[in-house]
Design a protein around this nucleic acid. Structure first.
Lengths: 355, 355
DNA sequence: CTGAAAGCGCTTACAG
DNA sequence: CTGAAAGCGCTTACAG
């Protein structure tokens, strides 16, 4: 295929009028015949300004197209209405949806939103410092190991809120954080599978966010449900976040005829597992039931459609922003919306054993 | 399911040491026994500083943990190393991948990245002004109507680059922009389908980015391929970006037994079409061939796996950043990487007619 | 090679 | 109700 990408450098001829310098409060003051301090009062809505003066200033602002210089405002006032999100990823569904929630909330509150991706190669401290340098607050998405590590390194003096996989009891001082009850959701999903007659449930895990020996919440909920039912949890598999990782894990599980039910740490893994089962000639849900996690947008449209746990990442993002804002803007007391509970969505990929 | 979301307000007890004020260049100067201007010289790498002085200053910087105040730097120097991306969406694959490319490129160049989502309800001018207020440049993702409208309204004096669906000849002054050759890619995909023996190809469109009568490039390429083969293009369908929209369009197409090949404006639409065909009992690719656009990560893992056109959104994002940077930082001449060409990826969802 | 002055565009007390 | 002063933390000429 002979298809080429293009680039245009446009900008033929000079712009209609030169890139004239933006008007300052002094320009406005001169135009309105007042001191620039009075202009400051007007743009900040201070009460003690004569009505007529205010009108003159407003008129000058209009005609000059004045906009307050955000940098100067930040330097002089010390307030920066901005949030920088620190995350290891922006495209995986859970991250992208969380980011979307953060963006909406910050936009609604009049905050600017920055994004800074951290990779294993980056110097965590430099990345965090760069984010903090913006002057505003920081929200870290700590769903994974690198995000969690970043959270631990945010200096105490920078305003910060976090989204975490689960609260970590031992850590002090901790940061305001939000999380969903993944453990309970995984337990419910596993119990559902057991109630369908499956003798055990296999688990394909997402990577852990901690290096500790404590199980990740989704794995923990799965384990608890099995043990409550008196079944010994089989070994888990999975080494990644994407469909390819699910496919690798699924290939092995597909060979084992005792496997009739699989819970996956996210929908991408589930898609890979579905694909591996298909290649192995095992039908879903007749031979094997599969349940995912997150309810990504396309999960309802694949065939078989995916039974999964719907997560309110959007709401979590909004809540995390609320936690940060409470630190930045202490006199505003609008409480952040509470995220919806995880919900098991029953679709075609799960069913009774030996259907 | 009784699963509750949680919020922790953490922060038990005071932080180890009070949120002490950050060190300024004056603090560093005092500690090093020099004037603060000399500190400025050191942190900016100016040549004329005695080696020994430089060392003393560097030592003071280390012990005080000094970091230059980015806001003050921006105000005094007039340079802001930052980009704000204006987009209508951050989660759809094409947008998220583009954003990822922009983020990587800006991070590599030491620029901060901001994101500002525009919705039909927003006042475009206010949104753009807010983005421009940051001081740096703006990159607008103009893949859709609202993004394109935003691009048209960016004031001439703000540095700006764009990603567009296609160049628009009539517009002057235009902005530096990048785009992929969607038209050629759609033509190639359509020709492939025709070469497989299909008498015609139906098209499920993504929403247009312009209000003009000119066809969107993907639609145009499809039309050209059909006309070159002497077949009259059938009516197009599709009213949205997501799988649900594809499903609606697919339901109607599935009823028409003359439909044996369908090209879709993106992979999400294709997924919905696949689902509708499945519900109608029409097999893919035996009865109907389906081709998508974009090559989203999961498209290789659905069953049937999706034949699609791979787009280098990542590379487009990097290229767009390069175009902006060229305006902001005129003495740097590192040329932006050229995006990869769109490529048709053959998978299971397409095949010969009457297979 | 280094210091003193002026200024970036605002805000925040302080006078009047 | 409004103006003059000082300062936010830096940089950029200008002296020496």
């Amino acid at each position: 295929m002979d298809v080429t990408g293009h680039t245009s450098f446009g900008g033929h001829g000079d712009p209609p009028q030169g890139p004239q310098k933006a008007a300052s409060i002094r320009d406005v003051a001169a135009a309105a015949g007042v001191s620039y301090q009075t202009v400051s009062r007007v743009i900040n809505g201070h009460p003690n300004v004569k009505e007529e003066t205010r009108k003159r200033v407003d008129a000058a602002i209009q005609t000059l197209g004045f906009r307050r210089n955000a940098t100067a405002f930040a330097l002089a006032s010390g307030v920066t209405r901005s949030v920088t999100v620190i995350t290891s990823n922006t495209v995986l569904y859970g991250y992208a949806a969380t980011l979307q929630g953060l963006e909406e909330a910050s936009r609604a509150a009049g905050y600017a939103l920055g994004v800074r991706v951290v990779t294993p190669e980056d110097d965590l401290d430099r990345t965090i410092a760069a984010a903090a340098d913006t002057g505003g607050g920081v929200v870290v998405i700590g769903f994974d190991a690198i995000g969690a590590a970043a959270l631990d390194r945010v200096p105490a003096h920078v305003p910060c809120a976090a989204l975490v996989e689960a609260p970590r009891p031992g850590r002090t001082p901790s940061r305001p954080a939000v999380w969903a009850d993944d453990r309970e959701a995984a337990r419910a999903a596993t119990e559902h599978l057991l109630s369908l007659g499956h003798e055990t449930v296999h688990y394909v895990a997402i990577p852990a966010s901690t290096g500790t020996r404590r199980l990740a919440p989704r794995a923990e909920g799965w384990r608890q449900a099995l043990e409550a039912a008196g079944v010994t949890p089989p070994p888990t598999s999975g080494k990644g976040w994407d469909a390819q990782a699910g496919y690798e894990a699924g290939k092995k599980l597909a060979r084992n005829k005792d496997v009739t039910a699989i819970l996956c740490g996210n929908d991408d893994l589930a898609l890979g597992v579905l694909r591996a089962l298909h290649h192995a000639g095992r039908r879903v849900p007749e031979d094997v039931s599969v349940i995912g996690f997150d309810d990504a947008p396309h999960s309802a449209f694949v065939t078989p459609s995916l039974t999964t746990v719907r997560m309110d990442f959007h709401g979590l993002g909004r809540a995390a922003f609320g936690l940060l804002r409470a630190q930045l803007d202490t006199d505003q007391q609008e409480s952040a919306p509470v995220p919806a509970e995880p919900t098991l969505i029953l679709r075609e990929s799960s069913g009774p054993r030996d259907a």
